[in-house]
Computed example of a mutant assay.
Amino acid sequence: MFPWSMFPFNNDEMKNIADKMNPADIQSYVSEMIKKYVPPHMENSNVPFNFQTANSSQAQEKEQQKFHVDVFETFDHIFIRIQLPDEETHKQLKIFHTSNQAIIENMPEPGKRHTIILPSLVKRKGATALVKDLILEIKIPKMDDMQLTEVDVSEKF
């Protein structure tokens, strides 16, 4: 049997400790611990702490965006469709792409940059962009050569 009587706290001692505690001291201790462990961007928030939003920087980023982005692919191309806020916005945009990302400058506001991860590798040349009914559509051809290498499987290591 475990010797529980050897612990320094028995029921009477714990009751005395609880009676001597000051609620203001407890509040200051809890506040100090929260400041240590809550991310800096949430320190001045008047909203109660929510574990679902604490680690959702992507959700906050999407809320700040003033446009909607759809990315989909066909057999030959990747399409990016972005809802523009007004007719003049597309004149300020600069569009670039790497083999796996599309980069749109001056979106959602001048001086900002928005990066979109593409679902597959794309070619360096041949991309087009078109604006119609306040929708910017970017069409990028997919890379044909996937450079596959076969790996032999052996039974012994």
Rank of each mutant, 00 (worst) to 15 (best):
residue 1 M to F: 10
residue 3 P to G: 03
residue 9 F to W: 13
residue 10 N to D: 08
residue 10 N to Q: 08
residue 11 N to C: 01
residue 12 D to V: 13
residue 14 M to K: 05
residue 15 K to T: 15
residue 15 K to S: 14
residue 16 N to Y: 13
residue 17 I to G: 00
residue 22 N to W: 02
residue 25 D to A: 01
residue 26 I to C: 10
residue 26 I to H: 00
residue 27 Q to D: 01
residue 28 S to W: 10
residue 30 V to H: 04
residue 30 V to N: 11
residue 36 K to D: 12
residue 36 K to H: 12
residue 37 Y to L: 04
residue 38 V to R: 05
residue 40 P to Q: 04
residue 41 H to T: 00
residue 43 E to R: 13
residue 52 Q to N: 14
residue 52 Q to E: 12
residue 55 N to D: 13
residue 56 S to M: 10
residue 58 Q to R: 15
residue 58 Q to N: 12
residue 59 A to G: 13
residue 59 A to P: 02
residue 63 E to V: 11
residue 64 Q to S: 06
residue 65 Q to H: 14
residue 66 K to A: 06
residue 67 F to N: 12
residue 70 D to V: 12
residue 71 V to Y: 00
residue 79 F to L: 13
residue 81 R to M: 09
residue 85 P to C: 06
residue 86 D to W: 04
residue 88 E to S: 01
residue 91 K to S: 00
residue 91 K to I: 10
residue 93 L to H: 04
residue 99 S to E: 13
residue 99 S to F: 14
residue 101 Q to Y: 06
residue 105 E to G: 03
residue 108 P to T: 12
residue 109 E to C: 04
residue 110 P to W: 06
residue 114 H to D: 07
residue 121 L to Q: 08
residue 121 L to N: 12
residue 125 K to N: 07
residue 125 K to C: 11
residue 125 K to S: 10
residue 130 L to V: 11
residue 131 V to M: 00
residue 131 V to P: 07
residue 132 K to R: 14
residue 133 D to H: 08
residue 135 I to W: 08
residue 136 L to F: 00
residue 138 I to Y: 06
residue 139 K to T: 15
residue 146 M to N: 15
residue 146 M to S: 03
residue 147 Q to Y: 03
residue 147 Q to H: 13
residue 149 T to P: 09
residue 153 V to G: 02
residue 155 E to D: 02
residue 157 F to D: 03
